[in-house]
Amino acid sequence: MDEWRLIEFGVVDIKYMMAMNEAILRRAPTNTVFFWTPLKSIILGFFQRASVELNLDRCKDYTIVRRISGGGIAFSDDHGRQINYGVVGEIDGARFPLDIIDSYHAICNVFIEVLKDYGMDAGFRPINDIVVSGRKISGNAQTRRGSRLLQNGTLLLDFDVSEMVRVLNVPSEKYSDKLVNSVEEGLTWMDKELGYPVRIDDVKKKIITKFEERFDITLKPTTPTPNEAELGDELFEKYSSPKWNFK
């Protein structure tokens, strides 16, 4: 049975984490699954512009960073009630299909099975979302370099919709309870579905087990290699620079 790496970064500086995402994509010695917990941060998709998407006056106490994959904003409040993951894998046509949507689906299936275990009506909504009863509970973003993919995603355990809407660039005349409600209608999170606060460690354990079962592998806990850590340190500068984050 193949062995992949499992790295738990814990609560992180999101700029460092974006640097490590790229470092692992470029230098991972083998397929790798990793987790981190963001606090008060906003991660922009590669093609997004901070000045367009955000009310910058309202997010002065947030860390804003842009990632190397496309897609939309990943917002995290100060509760730490979301699981952020990364997968770096060789696109081998089997475990990780060449077709982009198929490869999203292959990884998202892990999380869908976990949610189903909790009794939720979870499914994949192409291109890159996981939904429960039609409401988004997980957003995912993938990029590729050579024969490798990097997929990041967020699984929401709890979520402050009104705080997210507050920092978005919504003209003040359009900001209303109605807008918050309409955004809220399209989203859901585990605590809301279950009616109680689920233990984050329990969910992570289930995710790890499902990864092992679905991909027929074992996940071995470890830390980044010196090679990855060195590149991560170098890339930290890029992910800290206004030129990159506020292009």
Binding site: V52, G70, I100
Partner: peptide, 11 residues
């Protein structure tokens, strides 16, 4: 200038 929340490879 083109921007947005779409996906495009290579970026």
């Amino acid at each position: 200038i083109l921007s947005g929340d779409f996906f495009l490879y290579p970026e």
